[in-house]
Write a protein that binds this DNA or RNA. Structure first.
Lengths: 343, 343
DNA sequence: GTGAAAGCGCTAACAT
DNA sequence: ATGTTAGCGCTTTCAC
């Protein structure tokens, strides 16, 4: 399809607005970007023409000329998680009044996908990258190191980041949950999680949890990992299976609130004495828990604040004023709810 | 900051790869895009150099030169909804092997935000737009009409679209739910929804529902709208309130499954005879329902398939082969579950 | 199979 | 306050 000057579907250019308004391209450009001094009269002429024609600027050309792109790459493992939408909320909130725009990529917990999404996004020369986790393929890590833009790795602070890091220590979260459970007098404890070899944060929580139990001379009675399907349903099924196998269990630690909620519903329906004879806890602090018949014990993962702090670093508005290499470790708070007994 | 030729943070260009490999920029470009004939020897040299240097192509320049952008704008109202992540899943699935990349914008149900996000996205000259709903500001509609690229409006088929449309009739969904409820013998019916003046699909479902009741000579006993907070919790609260106000109610129709689930849990805890004396239904068919103590009646909104069909149209792979103006009306299926009594 | 030249639509820098 | 010039880093086109 050739582009004649008369083709009505040819996207409009600055030149069209320039001709329609009798003002130079440069001045049109200035008006449209609110730059420099332009008289009210010409400004009005230009805006009228642009609006009448329905001109939409070409950011591709603009970005190439100015070497500036108002995009921030945000790379996360999943959207169906309830946790990442919260992080994104925090990010948007901050970026909204900076002129920066988040662009989201989803890796599905695959390091290979992460690598290729990162490559794709970097090829648009964004102003910064916010990426979940500290574990990346060597190629991805090297891209991040050489990108020459601010990088913020989020969610996890257990390890060394490429540049800035905003997260929580999942290992510590696991340890503290173990400590709370032990302190409440539970002794025969099992772990239920989703099978996600590349969910390093869930893995670290489990490691910390085991460590915490060990400190009290305890070991996990059992651990189960499922994958796929409705998390709520999986939580039920896993709970039923593990309690059948080990009726002596007195505490179930779930790797996330959704499966924990499923487990809680199942236990209540089946007449378990929660938290008297059987304690339960999840992780994340999702607001879905507010609607359950009983409050599942959990730990707030600071999702919204992680988003805010990460975006602030990218926007150069971080509290510290530091340039790069900032490390922010947030502290998740244990919410004992009604599924850990009081002592 | 000036860019000396020695600055190690200056992004690499084709020229750098060209010099490092002793091959012309043009040939490097061909290798990197797998275009045209290049001898294996030079191809190897180029790839080696590109990899060694860590070259990441500049898509901005590429897009400007080629007038081709592999981006598809996807504009939706919310991510925390459980429904849009499913649509996105369908979209990605299809686009994955077309070289196209979805870029997501979230409007929060604000027409103004939708307009500005659309403007922003169009300024990157995407290859297509997938946008939720048929209702837009006049300016947004005009941008869509003049964009000169495929537009697919999704989720809703009750109205006239700009170009292609893939969705379901929410009015009809409401009518059919009403018919099913009436057929089951319920008579004193209330509606519970979230207060969302710009959620046109929820509005149309309610309108269709009222219409369906009218056909049987019935009227809504009550309707309640809440906003904000955990949907599950809101569902509980609304249910409690409305049943207190109108104890004679024998059916509750919820505008979405999440508040429906909250209502279901509350009713079960409070000893209501569901579905004998009180029937319940939601909308969407979210898989969370699988994990509830009883299956909430619902209607599948065909979210995943909507994503697939929309993406196929953008990718030019639609079954019909039609160019533009395609209208696909999907048929939501009533899933009676265990909360509508059988006759 | 490879290279040289022109230009995509803008904006930085420098006039005036 | 407004205009002119020279690219931004690629790809298209055409030449060899």
């Amino acid at each position: 399809m050739t582009r004649t000057p008369l083709d009505p579907r040819r996207p409009l250019t600055l030149r069209d607005v320039s001709e329609a308004s009798g003002v130079s391209e440069m001045t049109v450009s200035r008006v449209l970007r609110n730059r420099g001094d332009v008289s009210d009269a010409t400004r009005a002429k230009v805006l009228e023409a642009a609006q009448r024609l329905g001109y939409v600027p070409n950011k591709i050309a603009g970005a190439l000329a100015s070497q500036r792109v108002n995009l921030v790459a945000v790379i996360i493992p999943s959207l169906s998680n309830l946790v990442f939408p919260d992080v994104l909320g925090g990010i948007s909130e901050v970026l909204e009044d900076t002129g920066l725009q988040p662009v989201v990529g989803v890796t599905k917990y695959s390091p290979q996908r992460e690598e290729s999404i990162l490559y794709e996004m970097l090829s648009w020369r964004p102003s910064g990258v916010i990426i979940a986790g500290l574990e990346h393929t060597p190629a991805a890590r090297s891209m991040l190191e050489n990108a020459g833009i601010p990088i913020v790795e989020i969610m996890d602070s257990d390890g060394k980041g490429v540049d800035s890091v905003v997260g929580i220590s999942h290992r510590r979260a696991g340890r503290e949950m173990a400590a709370a459970i032990v302190a409440a007098g539970y002794k025969r404890i099992a772990f239920l999680g989703t099978k996600m070899p590349d969910d390093h944060r869930a893995r670290k929580r489990l490691e910390g949890f085991i460590e915490g139990l060990a400190k009290a001379g305890l070991e996990l009675v059992d651990s189960v990992f499922y994958s796929g399907g409705s998390a709520l349903l999986k939580g039920r099924e896993m709970t039923k299976a593990v309690l059948k196998r080990h009726p002596e269990i007195d505490f179930l630690y779930y790797s996330n609130d959704m499966i924990g909620a499923g487990g809680l519903l199942w236990c209540l329906e089946n007449g378990y004495d929660v938290p008297g004879k059987l304690g339960l806890a999840g992780f994340n602090g999702v607001d879905l828990l507010d609607g359950l018949p009983r409050r599942l014990a959990t730990m707030d993962a600071c999702r919204h604040e992680i988003g805010i702090r990460a975006a602030e670093i990218i926007a150069g508005r971080s509290h510290s004023g530091q340039i790069g290499g900032e490390v922010v470790e947030l502290t998740p708070v244990l919410q004992p709810g009604d599924t850990i007994r009081k002592r």
